[in-house]
Simulated assay, not measured.
Amino acid sequence: MIVVGAGIIGLTTAVVLAERGVRVRVWAREPAEDTTSAVAGALWWPYRIEPQPLVGAWALESLGVYEELAARPAETGVRLRDGVLRGTRLDGLDAWAARVPGLRQGDEGLLARLPLIDMPVHLAWLRARLLAAGVVVEERTVTDLSGVPAPVVVNCAGLGARELVPDPAVRPVRGQLVVVENPGVTSWFVSADHSSGTSAYFFPQPGGLILGGTAEDDAWSLTPDPAVAEGIVARCAAVRPEIADARVLAHRVGLRPARHAVRLERHRLPDGRLLVHNYGHGGAGVTVAWGCAREAAGLVRPAG
Score class of each variant (00 low, 15 high):
residue 193 D to G: 05
residue 98 A to G: 13
residue 158 G to M: 06
residue 118 D to E: 15
residue 135 V to R: 06
residue 127 R to N: 00
residue 117 I to F: 06
residue 79 R to A: 08
residue 180 V to C: 08
residue 144 D to H: 10
residue 175 G to A: 09
residue 151 P to M: 08
residue 95 A to S: 13
residue 71 A to N: 11
residue 193 D to P: 11
residue 106 G to A: 09
residue 174 R to F: 12
residue 62 S to N: 05
residue 159 L to E: 00
residue 62 S to I: 09
residue 121 V to E: 09
residue 144 D to P: 02
residue 112 A to N: 07
residue 123 L to P: 01
residue 97 A to N: 08
residue 195 S to E: 05
residue 165 V to E: 01
residue 192 A to H: 13
residue 194 H to K: 03
residue 125 W to A: 01
residue 105 Q to T: 08
residue 181 E to H: 11
residue 195 S to T: 06
residue 107 D to W: 14
residue 134 G to T: 03
residue 83 G to Y: 10
residue 153 V to P: 06
residue 175 G to D: 04
residue 55 V to L: 04
residue 127 R to M: 04
residue 188 W to R: 01
residue 71 A to H: 14
residue 146 S to K: 14
residue 156 C to L: 08
residue 134 G to A: 02
residue 160 G to R: 00
residue 167 D to Q: 02
residue 157 A to S: 11
residue 76 T to H: 12
residue 110 L to Q: 02
residue 166 P to A: 05
residue 53 P to V: 02
residue 85 L to P: 08
residue 92 G to Y: 14
residue 151 P to H: 11
residue 125 W to L: 01
residue 100 V to E: 01
residue 129 R to L: 02
residue 169 A to C: 04
residue 111 L to C: 07
residue 153 V to L: 10
residue 101 P to H: 07
residue 95 A to I: 08
residue 96 W to H: 05
residue 127 R to V: 08
residue 106 G to S: 07
residue 130 L to Y: 07
residue 72 R to G: 00
residue 72 R to I: 06
residue 129 R to W: 09
residue 96 W to Q: 00
residue 72 R to T: 04
residue 136 V to D: 12
residue 73 P to G: 03
residue 194 H to I: 01
residue 128 A to H: 03
residue 73 P to W: 14
residue 90 L to H: 14
residue 128 A to K: 06
residue 79 R to M: 10
residue 175 G to W: 11
residue 154 V to T: 05
residue 183 P to L: 00
residue 137 V to P: 01
residue 175 G to V: 03
residue 80 L to S: 07
residue 174 R to C: 03
residue 78 V to Y: 13
residue 118 D to F: 15
residue 144 D to C: 04
residue 63 L to Y: 13
residue 178 V to S: 03
residue 82 D to R: 15
residue 51 P to Y: 00
residue 55 V to C: 01
residue 169 A to R: 00
residue 175 G to L: 07
residue 104 R to Q: 09
residue 96 W to N: 02
residue 124 A to D: 09
residue 67 E to S: 11
residue 94 D to M: 12
residue 194 H to N: 08
residue 158 G to C: 04
residue 85 L to F: 15
residue 182 N to M: 04
residue 185 V to K: 05
residue 83 G to H: 08
residue 191 S to M: 07
residue 145 L to R: 05
residue 109 G to E: 02
residue 60 L to N: 11
residue 193 D to S: 01
residue 67 E to D: 10
residue 103 L to Y: 07
residue 99 R to I: 01
residue 179 V to H: 05
residue 77 G to Y: 15
residue 79 R to Y: 13
residue 59 A to N: 07
residue 153 V to E: 03
residue 143 T to A: 06
residue 130 L to K: 01
residue 137 V to A: 03
residue 146 S to N: 10
residue 104 R to W: 14
residue 66 Y to V: 01
residue 152 V to R: 05
residue 83 G to R: 10
residue 138 E to L: 13
residue 149 P to H: 11
residue 70 A to I: 10
residue 182 N to C: 05
residue 103 L to A: 07
residue 171 R to G: 00
residue 137 V to T: 13
residue 85 L to E: 10
residue 192 A to F: 13
residue 194 H to L: 10
residue 146 S to V: 13
residue 71 A to F: 13
residue 112 A to L: 09
residue 60 L to C: 08
residue 79 R to W: 14
residue 93 L to A: 02
residue 71 A to D: 08
residue 119 M to L: 15
residue 186 T to G: 05
residue 128 A to N: 02
residue 143 T to S: 09
residue 60 L to M: 11
